[in-house]
Nucleic acid binder design. Structure first.
Lengths: 244, 244
DNA sequence: ATCGGAAATTAACTTGGGTCAAAACGATTT
DNA sequence: AAATCGTTTTGACCCAAGTTAATTTCCGAT
């Protein structure tokens, strides 16, 4: 089902079979979108939200000189712009990073879901608050970590999120992003991202090539990024942490 | 009333008289708290949330070496940790910056409000999403602005938020924070914040002394910080922007 | 008015990451 | 196989911001 990964393994907030079916049948349309396409422009009045089924998407803010800061990346199972449901317009753009499959849910359908199953309101709300918690972890990353720490933290986070989506084994995962993407995520230049990736490679901590991340020394990576997955509100974070 | 400033002037989401009264009567307790006190510790199971009535509060994450990154500051009218209602535990600490008056609302009371006035669910949800939008603006600030831009952006934002709370005239406002606080907000050192404040003072853009901010050249400040108040979802942002 | 501690200020020096430019690489198309 | 285009890699150089430490200012308490 398209909604299988939504809220999966989220602490006490997973959907039960009924709720999932209700959401699934509320999908208005499923589309595929090419890589690097803008899906939502900021300030547009929206009557629908986008569930990411397959692929990677981003949310970002551009500055006056065309420099870009990503404020979120999304993996399969994320309800990318569910916050448009209460907010009505977004303060940022939403785009695909890879080619992607997305499911559209109209806001009227969300009204109906909540009418039928009032507790769903809390779960949908919760889902948007996880995004906010991730924002806060990114603030910590940008405000207090150096370049190595920022990359390390991002890789730990992405490993954890993809693991929870069934798309990482806890040490290895596909990450179809460029070094320029990483730069726009971590507030760095692509040149410096390249220097950091070399460092991590030479220290045998982590290798990123051909869109594949392999974590060789998770303990070291977690330490460099001061990573604590608490903010992801996962049921069981152990598999993405050092074993002891 | 303690709740007068909550959601005031928020685009299409203000409370009507009924809703406000309902929230007001749901307040369990009103307390004053000294400056620099921790109010909520991360990971604690919470059954109540905190509405800030008077004073300034912060939310922050400390790193392993005791460096601190603020992830939010809160002004009167903010429902500081309303996100604890769906999340149950927080991923960060909450503290007062100044002495503060806070109103406590139990989560059971929120359940009752939503039961009685289902549309309140949407408004409370909206309020937590404004905080997330501010997080994103902070990500942009930390990721893509230099020191002057970060301070300028923060001052514009705070001016706008305090204006909307009736605590700025659009050019002048009390800001009882230290330069070290600003540093922890902007991902800088207190020494560098001091250098930037001097620059802004000498350029006759903005003066900050004795806990008072005076914006002398709002046009310049907005430009330096690339500030666009759209993300605050205000009814009418004009008073906090250059006049033309 | 004086004292004491916090906050602000300044200077001297260092450094992490930005900038610019060139080269190498790799996947896709012709 | 050659050409093309985006991406990665590397080097040389520079500067914004960090670090350290001393000094001054401000303010509340006595």
């Amino acid at each position: 089902m398209f909604t299988d990964r939504f809220l999966r393994f989220k602490r006490g907030m997973s959907l039960d079979a009924n709720e999932r079916l209700l959401l699934e049948t509320s999908i208005d349309e499923v589309r595929t979108v090419d890589a690097r396409r803008i899906v939502i422009r900021s300030r547009t009045r929206l009557q629908e939200s986008t569930l990411l089924v397959e692929g990677f998407m981003s949310r970002y803010i551009d500055d006056r000189n065309g420099m870009r800061q990503l404020v979120a990346i999304h993996v399969p199972g994320d309800f990318v712009d569910l916050h448009a449901y209460p907010l009505q317009t977004l303060d940022h753009d939403v785009a695909t990073m890879t080619s992607a499959t997305i499911a559209i849910v109209r806001h009227e359908a969300l009204d109906a879901i909540i009418h039928e199953q009032p507790q769903m309101s809390r779960k949908l709300w919760f889902s948007t608050l996880i995004d906010a918690a991730i924002h806060r972890a990114w603030l910590f990353r940008l405000g207090r970590l150096d370049a190595v720490g920022r990359i390390a933290h991002f890789l730990c986070e992405t490993n954890a999120r993809l693991f929870s989506a069934g798309l990482s084994d806890g040490r290895r995962f596909a990450l179809p992003l460029t070094q320029t993407d990483l730069a726009e995520i971590c507030g760095l230049t692509n040149v410096h991202v390249n220097r950091v990736m070399r460092q991590l490679r030479e220290a045998k901590v982590c290798v990123f090539r051909s869109s594949l991340v392999e974590i060789l020394d998770i303990e070291q990576l977690v330490k460099l990024g001061q990573f604590d997955p608490d903010y992801l509100y996962l049921e069981d974070p152990d598999p993405v942490l050092p074993s002891h």
